[in-house]
Design a protein around this nucleic acid. Sequence first.
DNA 1: ATAGGCTCTGTTTTT
DNA 2: CAGAGCCTAT
Length: 654
Amino acid sequence: MQPARRPEESLLAELNPEQRAAVTAPDGPILVIAAAGTGKTRTLTYRVAHLVARGVDPERILLLTFTNRAAREMLDRARALVGEAVGGVWGGTFHHLANRILRRYASLIGYGCDYSILDRDDSRSLIRECIQRLGIQRRHFPKPDVLAGLFSTVRNRGEDLEKAVADRFDTRWFDAGDIRRVYTAYEERKRRINAMDFDDLIINVVALMEEHPQVLKRYQEQFEHILVDEYQDTNHLQAAWIDMLAAGRHNLLVVGDDFQSIYGWRGAEYRNILDFPKRYPQARVYMLETNYRSTPEILEVANICISGNPEQFQKRLRPVRSGDGHRPVAAFVLDGHHQAEYVIDVIYQLQGEGIPAREIAVLYRAHYHAMELQLEMFRRQIPYLLTSGVRFFEQMHIKDVCTVVRLAHNPRDFMAFSRLLRLLNGVGERTAEKIWAALGESFDPLDDERQKEVGRQLPGTAQPDWNAISSAILRCRTKSPHISAGDLIQALTDTFYRQYVLASFTDAERRLEDIAEVIRFAATFPDIESFVSQSGLLSNLEAEPDHPAYAAGRDAVRLSTIHQAKGLEWTAVIILWLTRGMFPSQRSVRAEDIAEERRLFYVAVTRARSRLFLCCPVHRRERNGGLSRCEPSPFLSELPEGVVEVQRELNRYW
DNA sequence: ATAGGCTCTGTTTTT
DNA sequence: CAGAGCCTAT
């Protein structure tokens, strides 16, 4: 049953005056500063609905977000308001839009449109390969993942490589010029194997539009209205790209909250949002400060903690809800294990009060902070949903089985080729490289002549497996006119990978289930290209609404990093490890780093609707088994007396 | 020369 | 837990 189209007035009646003003703002640049819990998503959703109801062609609306989840949520909600027309709205992440455009026009900038997308792991090994090829002594040379991070920062912020190197390394130990050489080699290598890393997607789409004004013009004309979510998280390049797309009409609405800027480390510049009114002097600015989510007690903690930060749009969260007699709790516990027990006690207690598991979240600064809790919850069989650190498509076994698909899509994908061949007995890096060179640096797995050629070059130890794999892959081709990603993965698994997994991993069962999952997932895509693009840009499968874990998770306690919890809310939130060195992290030293940690704490606190628990262990177990003392986090110790209820759980043990 | 096994170490946050 | 480095068997 399709929801009926609703008249404008009834839409607008559901908004408060602040929100309504933003939703009905006239065309032109608009900045909406939406503090946490003030109905940011609602405002954006209603704006989309408002535009559609006003007669704007949905296909001419672009809604940019940072996660797939946010895009889907907003479009679903807009659909409920104004009906199926919303389906035409283009909504997605920056990387998805860039990918969509590049798939069409990559040939204009010297790439094949069938390029592969490199994940972090791929870029790291490619950089390692470059270091090796250049014959650089690796003793004191920065490690590939350090370099990957450096290159990414430099490219996203438009910094000078040499300067960044001088700032960050002690160059007495190696030739600083080698870093530039690795950088250049890496760039060349990516083009040669027709692959882009995440940064390239944005960099290349901007380059494409700068070099080919007709392409830029096409999209400028298409997108009559551009809406951007979480604008404070955009980096220099993304902001420039948006400006390009919006040039002309300037129908650009950006929504964000400088208080919630937590991606500085990956190049986000909250100056983009602070300076928006300078870049667009005609911009109208709307502030949303009325908070619908949390109790006054929780908002007080949030307001106090953030007020000391420098350089921000000054604003205070104004509660609508009244207090329910629960102050946030600051719990001092003995150590990590004790913290896990305490958290589980709290979970039971909350459930006893009628709060369901799915309404409880445990949030933390870094994945490893939740280790003990995970073990303890597992041991006690308490269901929990973990947004894991390792992303589904970055796991070894998943990447292994996806190699065939990647090659079928982009025959120049050396990363996939090498990975596939190295699975075989007696084949390592060297052999894979030699065969690749002999093949002329490309390999189509569906071509039986090419397969035979590989077979001839392989050492005898690898041939039986290769023959089995290749004939199964060929059968996929005859099975149906257009080859499916699922069939290819199935073929590789049945003929070879299943026994490989069983022989190599102790948790083979779990991994095989994951593979079955990929095959099911692949079946939801019409062709190989969309599967390759999606799997490369997807954060984690469990966050997908059609994933079984998503449904299962509906009745489980959620364990998540604060970064991944952004935009979500729960009745009760428990924050772990509020000690100096853990949160704020040891690595934050400069004032601006601490300011970002503070914003992160603010994000965590404002996820809670009614109950908030702040945990502070007083000891921490060292690697060597010893105990060291922990100081409470400044975020905790700065709170005036009476704002939180202090529980000293230590007494129980003393 | 190359592959693969064995041991050691170190762990923020993500599209 | 997996990646890097070292060592040994082919």
